[in-house]
Amino acid sequence: MTGLHWAAVGGQLGPIRLLVERGTPLEAKNGYGATVLGQAVWAAVNSHPVCRWPDTKPDWGAMVRTLLDAGARPDAYPGLQERVEQVLRERR
């Protein structure tokens, strides 16, 4: 995984913004085939609070919006668009 994937798993909005500003590729895939946006959506729905320490209640909606605003593609693979919309609705 890239540093951006790891920041997404941890729900770390500050590092996500920094890495996006520095041009980290948004469409790089992790070992499971997920882009950073896909990793962020997965983490919003599935991650355990221990993975998000010290911030146990990240703003998943802001994180997903930041990635989308930076150009992450919600159509990168089947089903991602729907999951992105779910996170934006439910996790603000």
Rank of each mutant, 00 (worst) to 15 (best):
A40H: 00
Q12M: 13
A62N: 13
R91C: 13
L68H: 02
C51V: 05
P25N: 00
A44Q: 02
L37M: 05
A28W: 01
D75V: 02
D59Y: 08
V45C: 12
V50P: 12
K57W: 13
G3A: 10
M63Y: 01
Q39C: 10
H48V: 08
G23T: 08
E27C: 03
A34N: 13
T2K: 05
L18C: 15
W6Y: 13
G11A: 08
P15I: 01
E27L: 06
W6E: 13
W6R: 14
Q86V: 10
R17C: 13
V41T: 06
Q39P: 04
V45D: 11
D69R: 12
G11Y: 06
A34S: 07
P15A: 02
T35W: 07
L19S: 09
L68R: 01
T56A: 12
A28E: 11
M63D: 04
L80G: 12
G3M: 04
A70F: 11
A70W: 11
Q39M: 10
R73F: 05
G14D: 15
P15H: 02
V64F: 01
L18W: 11
G14M: 13
E90L: 15
Q86H: 11
L88M: 12
L80S: 07
E85R: 10
V41H: 03
N46F: 06
R52H: 08
Q39W: 01
E21A: 15
G33L: 00
R89M: 09
G79R: 04
L37C: 08
H5K: 02
E21S: 15
A28H: 04
A8R: 00
L68Q: 02
T66V: 15
V41G: 02
E82A: 14
G61K: 03
T24R: 02
A34T: 01
L18V: 15
G71Y: 07
R92W: 09
M63V: 08
R89K: 14
V87D: 03
V9M: 12
L4Y: 01
G10I: 03
D69A: 14
A8Q: 00
M1N: 09
G61P: 06
P74I: 00
L4D: 02
Q86E: 10
V36G: 00
I16Q: 00
